[in-house]
């Protein structure tokens, strides 16, 4: 259990792990996440499950190295075991037949978006996928999305691939083209989700976002992941992680996400100096 069967670096600082966990593979549904711990002194941190394979008894995790904990996880090799993997946590995505749906992923957000898009397609929806990244080498899962979506559009901030601009620019294009859309899922960094929601709110397009606030236990015990949705306090771990994006207080979420920013940066810098990871650059 928890053994890493396959490890790939799919973009600079972005790693995909296929992890053996028979029971998790049986129970994981789109939208679920796991809590991981990599070392005895390590933090507990959440990662959304990027895929699962019941017959093979595996789950897939895709993550970006953003701090010490993810750096330690990235250091593990095939055959190593992740110390703790707990899940499946959170509520699963509400998969229904909506019609034509928009799935918008920003940066690493394409990873948690993929199983949702796949399930929506399997449920009979037409899926329009939009993937955004800073630059061409950071675009992830494009072929995976192409295999399941009816249409895939890519945007890069610097114009090195696809349309130059943000995910929101592509969504604006879709609106300008008069495309009818029944629902939207938007997953990515807070500014991206906020911007998408501003756009879809104006267009009256119901939008679900997946939030990834700081959490410790992931089972509703610590309350560290509380977010304000529609003026009410919700725990992302048990009430979410998906919420109505038009109701989310993104300012509060962004501030709380930065709680330990100073100390994490320090740790991460120390960690980067200590580790040699030639395949990554910044």
């Amino acid at each position: 259990m928890n053994e890493i069967l396959k490890k790939e670096v799919i973009a600079p600082d972005v790693v995909r792990l296929v992890v053996a966990h028979r029971k998790l593979a049986c129970k994981a549904q789109p939208g679920h996440f796991v809590i991981l711990r990599v070392s005895e002194d390590g933090e507990r941190f959440p990662l959304t499950i990027a895929d699962s394979n019941t017959p093979q008894g595996t789950i897939t995790l895709i993550f970006q190295v953003v701090g010490k904990s993810t750096a330690l996880l990235a250091e593990l090799a095939e055959g190593d075991t992740i110390l703790d993997v707990v899940g499946p946590l959170g509520r699963a995505t509400e998969i229904q037949r909506y019609g034509r749906v928009l799935c918008a992923g920003g940066g690493i957000g394409a990873a948690p978006l993929y199983p949702i898009a796949k399930a929506l397609k399997e449920a009979g929806n037409q899926v329009v996928a939009v993937i955004g990244a800073r630059s061409k080498n950071l675009v992830i899962l494009e072929s995976a999305f192409r295999a399941i979506a009816d249409e895939v559009r890519v945007a890069t901030d610097d114009g090195t691939y696809g349309r130059r601009g943000f995910v929101t620019d592509v969504i604006a294009d879709l609106f300008a083209e008069g495309r009818t859309l029944a629902r939207c899922w938007a997953i990515g960094p807070v500014p991206m989700m906020r911007a998408v929601c501003d756009l879809t709110r104006a267009a009256g397009l119901p939008t679900t976002v997946s939030l990834n606030p700081i959490m410790v236990d992931g089972t509703g015990m610590c309350g560290g992941c509380r977010v304000i949705v529609g003026g009410e306090v919700k725990f992302a771990c048990v009430d979410g992680p998906e919420f109505d994006g038009h109701q989310v207080d993104f300012d509060s979420l962004a501030r709380r996400l930065a709680t330990y920013h100073d100390s994490e940066q320090r740790d991460h810098e120390a960690c980067r100096i200590a580790l040699t990871r030639p395949e990554t650059k910044d």
Partner: peptide, 8 residues
């Protein structure tokens, strides 16, 4: 350990 009954 690491087993949430009700989930896993």
């Amino acid at each position: 350990t690491d087993t949430v009954i009700g989930k896993l």
